[in-house]
Design a binder for these strands. Sequence first.
DNA 1: GCTTGACTTGGAGTCTACTCCAAGTCGGAA
DNA 2: TTCCGACTTGGAGTAGACTCCAAGTCAAGC
Lengths: 152, 152
Amino acid sequence: MSSCRIGEAAQHVGMSADTLRYYERIGLMRRALRDGGGRRAYTDAELERLRFIKRAQAMDFKLAEIRQLLELRDHPPSARVEARRLAHDKLAEVIERLRTLRHLRDELRLLLNLCLGAEQCPILELNPHPLKRVAPAIRKRQPAARHRHAAR
Amino acid sequence: MSSCRIGEAAQHVGMSADTLRYYERIGLMRRALRDGGGRRAYTDAELERLRFIKRAQAMDFKLAEIRQLLELRDHPPSARVEARRLAHDKLAEVIERLRTLRHLRDELRLLLNLCLGAEQCPILELNPHPLKRVAPAIRKRQPAARHRHAAR
DNA sequence: GCTTGACTTGGAGTCTACTCCAAGTCGGAA
DNA sequence: TTCCGACTTGGAGTAGACTCCAAGTCAAGC
């Protein structure tokens, strides 16, 4: 059972010390024990928990979702079913986003190709069909972070 | 040359009146003319500009990028080359993001399948290889909006 | 004339995930 | 002992894209 200070811990898991403090503040991590000088002493278990958080973020889970996953890890009994649901939901999101992006890719390619020949650059209209003043039927924007979550 | 007030304009283009005010405030739209009562009077050209903004957003362009596109529209001479570059850059982004998401989709599918048979739910480790304590080589998260852009 | 919905302005607030600041402590190295 | 990097805390700030607030005006309809 070793422990390390915040700077070292941060380095181990590839995050900033400030991020670790932030996670403690918002409750994603429990309050770390302090050493005699009042400094945080991270255990191996805590480093592992941080690594889990990092992996989850790499998989596009938001902190709120990660919080849920962490809670499931803390209460194994019914964890499996719920964890499956979270992963399933995330998969559905990803698949949907893939659809949207494929469509967007195709649209952009088309615009770029048309730009080569057209007299009017279609990119400046974002409309591949200059003669039809109809906006392209692009899927509504993926809802960005809520803040501008003008749910687009 | 007709004109309409902000509420009507907002409805026409599918945005909120507040968003239109915001766009004027940040300079994405020029200051609209005011009627005798001090209220904004949107021209058809301005409605069209707003529609362009909306189309660009649907194509994952950020407001800063949209600003650039709008400027190109205002100065046609060298617009084409620059517009091509912006669209090309966006296409590259989209393609890269598609790669990342495909990988993530596969990873999630694997985890969900493994979850069915494993004694330990691999989702709660976010690691398809329980015997190998190595984090999955997931691509670094797509940089979200800068704010949390914790470049993920 | 009165009512009321639409609108004005400047500025603050929201969301998410951090990051920075300021003032002070700790402790290892010189 | 002194120096200085690492660390503490509470709180404010950042980014991007909105959205809400408060106090007041406008004008159509009754």
